[in-house]
Design a protein around this nucleic acid. Structure first.
Lengths: 298, 298
DNA sequence: GGATGAGATTTGTCGGACAATAATTCCAAC
DNA sequence: GTTGGAATTATTGTCCGACAAATCTCATCC
């Protein structure tokens, strides 16, 4: 084998860049001892707290090796530490870097492949797929994008989806909603009013409100966009509460939407939602312009 | 172990239903001999031809065991042969039914889990997730749904997405499109005009046209809805060409959209697309009402 | 110069083993 | 009888080592 082989413990990008030790997920400090230490925080450099896009109730099965590895690689792909076209190390070497068996590493790769982010071929190896193939609407993938500081373009795209989806969904919800849907919206909005957006619970209620609207469309495909919408909301509300000293009260717009839906007026619901998303869009742009790169601070 | 144990070669649903031998994917007739026989058709009962939602050029890596198994189970879930809450057999038993190793079967399960369709827990086993958790916008999942006769509700939901996405996208494309985008749209439409929708190539050009519009929005999240839109188009055009003796010429609406986008008139593009989707919606409902259950015929 | 074949490298698959986890059962104590 | 807790046990999670299959590379031959 001629030519200088890449040193152990490194990832090699297509351009020849070397990512030093970029890939080691929470070394499993002695697999026999220390079962009690539930290391929640996987230390990925420069990440924000994991967004709660989907509430896993109690038994969080996130302790599985392959899930953690898939997440670790997925975040690095989202953060463009690993770029499309880059080749991952061979399975034996990669497994060693993560200190896991080849089996576990392979299952992680299967997860990433299922999300369109990598592609494996014999002899060729496993390489990062072109961005257009990523299943970027996949809840977990979106979560990985939010783990690092998302690009401005990504945040704008997220809001592009909101602007497209939510007014339409509000109109549909106005005509299609059931009693149960309305209850969910009402309860979510009441909790949001009670707890405000300063608390994580309050923000969760905000997301739940919007999710309830998508669900009320009666269209399960539209409802499947909830995580995407939630991601946009999560991002905005997080930074709004950080950057604005006196954030505008978002409740009036929300109740306007709810009331229009309750009284089954599609057009009014659409318009109210357009206005709500418009306000959120302004907040988002404010966050983008003012916040700079303070995003990664603990 | 008291009580009658489920016989070998069966899947057991939650209600106690037994699915006889429902799960055997293309038994790999002697893994040493007969490499030449590329068994393209996985024999799943009552399926239509696999839709070409994403064109895999040449090296179709579909020969992999875990992909086939994931696909087989995914289709059965989509077809509701396996229902949410149902428990899959244990890994050893399931692997035996597919005549593969536990490793290969497990990788298949990881794929399905990555798409939100199953959930594995120790001791509990692997069970089908509630429908709301399925990543139903995932291209492969949509493909699995189209493999069997989709429910009317699903087809309507697909069109609900078209009605929401495409007019908005057309308007965005009118303002955001680049020269390259316009070329792609024009070429696709010209091919469609030349080959008509009777040929698969012509239908592919139709899908390519709509995909180009989504891409021209410049929003990669909206663009990620291409497979969903394509699925709706695929379904309609397939049955329109079967059921209608003299299908209406779809080209005028298409060129109306293209011209509006080319001249950068968002509102006109939106309206033209509303009309186009409206026509398609009518065709879809016609197919649903007239075609009945002739769908699965070879 | 192009086609062809041998070799080497990488993923794909196999089989068996043990660990970790949690549902179940059973026993004991109240 | 009920409740609490410990032992049992079934199931997934992980590891290891080996071989098969595919295909890229390169040398060879026509």
């Amino acid at each position: 084998m001629p030519g200088p082989r890449v040193a152990h413990g490194t990832f090699c990008t297509e351009n020849g860049d070397i990512v030093q030790g970029a890939l080691h997920v929470a070394d499993r400090i002695g697999r026999n001892s220390a079962t009690a230490q539930n290391g929640q925080q996987d230390d990925v450099p420069g990440v924000m707290r994991p967004p709660v896009l989907r509430d896993r109730p109690a038994g969080a099965p996130s302790a599985r090796l392959h899930d953690n590895i898939a997440r670790g690689i997925g975040i690095r792909i989202a953060a463009e530490t690993l770029k499309p076209g880059d080749l991952l190390p061979g399975e034996i070497e990669a497994a060693e870097q993560f200190s896991v068996s080849r089996t576990a590493y392979r299952e992680a790769v299967r997860i990433l492949a299922a999300k369109g982010m990598v592609e494996s071929r014999t002899k060729t190896g496993t390489r990062i797929s072109p961005r257009a193939r990523w299943h970027i609407l996949d809840p977990e993938v979106i979560g990985w994008f939010l783990e690092t500081k998302p690009s401005e373009a990504f945040v704008r795209d997220l809001f592009g989806v909101r602007q497209m989806v939510e007014p339409h969904a509000a109109a549909l919800a106005a005509t299609h909603h059931t009693r149960r849907d309305l209850d969910a919206m009402t309860e979510a909005l009441d909790t949001m009013a009670r707890l405000q957006l300063a608390t994580e619970e309050g923000r969760a209620a905000d997301r739940a409100f919007h999710q309830a609207i998508l669900a009320a469309t009666g269209n399960e495909l539209i409802s499947a966009l909830s995580p995407t919408v939630a991601a946009a909301i999560w991002w905005t509300t997080l930074f709004k509460s950080r950057t604005q000293q006196e954030p505008r009260d978002p409740l009036p717009e929300h109740y306007a939407v709810l009331n229009a839906i309750r009284s089954r007026e599609p057009e009014r619901a659409r318009e109210a939602m357009v206005e709500l998303v418009g306000f959120a869009f302004d907040d988002m742009q404010l966050s983008l312009s003012t916040d700079g790169d303070r995003l990664t601070r603990g």
